[in-house]
Structure formats: structure tokens, C-alpha cells
Amino acid sequence: MSSLPQFLANGMVFSCIIVLGAIGLSLVYSIADFANFAHGDLMTVGAFGALVGGRYFEGAFPGADVSVFGLPVSFYLALLAGMAVGAVVAVLTERIVYRPMDAGSIELLITSIGVALSYRALVQLQFGAGRRSYDIGRGGPIDFFRETLGIGMTSRSLVIVTLTFVLVVALHLLLQYTTLGRKMRATSDNPSLAKVSGIRTENVVVAMWIIGGALAAAGGVFLGLDTIVRPRMGFDILLVVFAAVILGGIGSVYGAMLGGFVIGMTHELTPVIPLVGVEYDSAVAFILMVIILLVRPSGIMGGEAA
């Protein structure tokens, strides 16, 4: 199972996780105007939220074990629980920590490091430092993909890709066709102008944290489903998510989607690159980011990068 199509399939799955993380990070960057280093650990919080949710919903009512697309119904409910936890934690953090601070973006950036460490410490206090999983049977590769494309694609991977697609399309529709979306785009473009036009920017900021937190949590749950749930999972992936945001152009949601796709693919295609070992997959994403900084610091779809 180490052929190019297989790597591409793995890349699709990993890209989805990165895209979900990158969207939230980019939203915060554009509206709250700082690099949120706690975003990775927000993904961890979501993953553990779903872990608790999974325990709660497992066998809680008749039909919870019914399998939909190869995963039990209780998992989908746990995913929703994880996203809710991510959103609530994000909003609470904004209320308690970021909003009362009358500080510039650099002070907020350093504060977000403190927030990241606190998230991880609390998760570790509650669940220990060990590895967990969602206790869902590891179904084998789906026959259809094996026979037609020659790749191993499990139902987990398929669910991750499908749900990410649904979430991304939903976000696109929200941004383009709803009043909230228009307000968000306006606030991101020019906060002062949005404010004098009568938009309650505080509410927009809260909405942005809810969306960013929920998507980050979904990314964390998918990462936990694809690999394993552990307290450092989010921090370890944060850099790759940042690489995606910078590649796409800071502040651009659609850039984050594209950047997440490219970086996720590169990450999983590391085995194909000659002379570079698999253990350097994160390093390759980082080198790519540095090249972007040298060649086009504003990213693929970004504006200025003064």
C-alpha cells in the first residue's frame, strides 16, 4: 500500500483535517487580528470533548449503535458534542481572556501561548498524558476503492472527507448568501467602516469564534479518528496549520482552504520526495512555508503583507 494513489488518498484525509484547522485560524487572524497559537490546542479540546461525548452517547438510546457509513450514530453525536465544546471554549476564552485586554496584536499573540499551555494542562489533568481512541472498530478498506483504484480507503477516511466537504460548503454558503456572512466579510475587510455602517462588530466577533472553534474541534475529532487522541495532538499539528494559513494568505478563508489542501497533500507525499525520510513530514511543510515567505509573503490569495 505504498503507491502514489495511496499517498494521494492519505493526503486527501490529512488535507481535510488541516483545512478545518486553517479556516478557523484564518478567521481569527482576519477579524481579531492576531496569530492565535492556542488554535491547535483548541483542536485537542474538541477531540477530547468528543471522547467524552462518545462515552455518553454510546448505547445511551436504542439505535445509537446503528452504523451509518460504517460508523455508529453515537460517533456523529459525539462529533457534534466536540464541536459544541470547541465553540463554547473558544467564546469563553474570548470573553474571559482576550476581550478585557486592551492590547495590541503582539501582546495577544503571546497571551495565546499562555492560553494554549493552559488548555493542554487542563486536558492532561483531566485525562492524563496517555493515548486514547474513539473505540470504534477499525473497519478494513472498502472493497470498491481497492478493486477500482487499488487504494486502501477505510470508511473512517470516507466519512472525514465527506463531512469536511459538507462543512466547507456550508461555510461558503454562510459567507456568501447570509446577512451574517456579509457582516463577517465586511468586518474582516475594514472593522471601523463596518462599525460605522451599523454592524455590531462585537457580535460578529463572537460568531467568528463560534465558527472557528467548532471547525477546529471538528478537525481535532477527525485527527483523533484518523490517528489517536492525545493531549499534544493539537500543538504538534499547529505549525502545519499555520503553514497552510500563510500559504493561502493570512485572513483569506478560501486561501486557507486551498493552502490546507496543498500543505496536507505535501505532508503525506513526503515519502515520494527523494532523499527525505518520512520522519521529516512536518519539516517539509515548514520548508514549503519558508519558501512561500521568500517568494510571495502575502500567500496565494492574500492581500498585502506589510
Binding site: M101, A103, I110, I113, S118, A121, L122
Partner: peptide, 23 residues
């Protein structure tokens, strides 16, 4: 009780509080 996460929490809160109250 594992002391490592407590230390991590202490460091994290210290960063937040210093920036917030005594920059």
C-alpha cells in the same frame, strides 16, 4: 496527581496574568 500538567497550567496562567495586569 501528576505534577507536570500542574506546572504547565501554572506557566500558562502566569503568561496570561502578567500580560493582562502587569505588562
Amino acid at each position: 496527581v501528576d505534577v507536570a500538567p500542574l506546572r504547565l497550567l501554572f506557566v500558562g496562567l502566569l503568561i496570561i496574568l502578567v500580560i493582562r495586569y502587569r505588562e
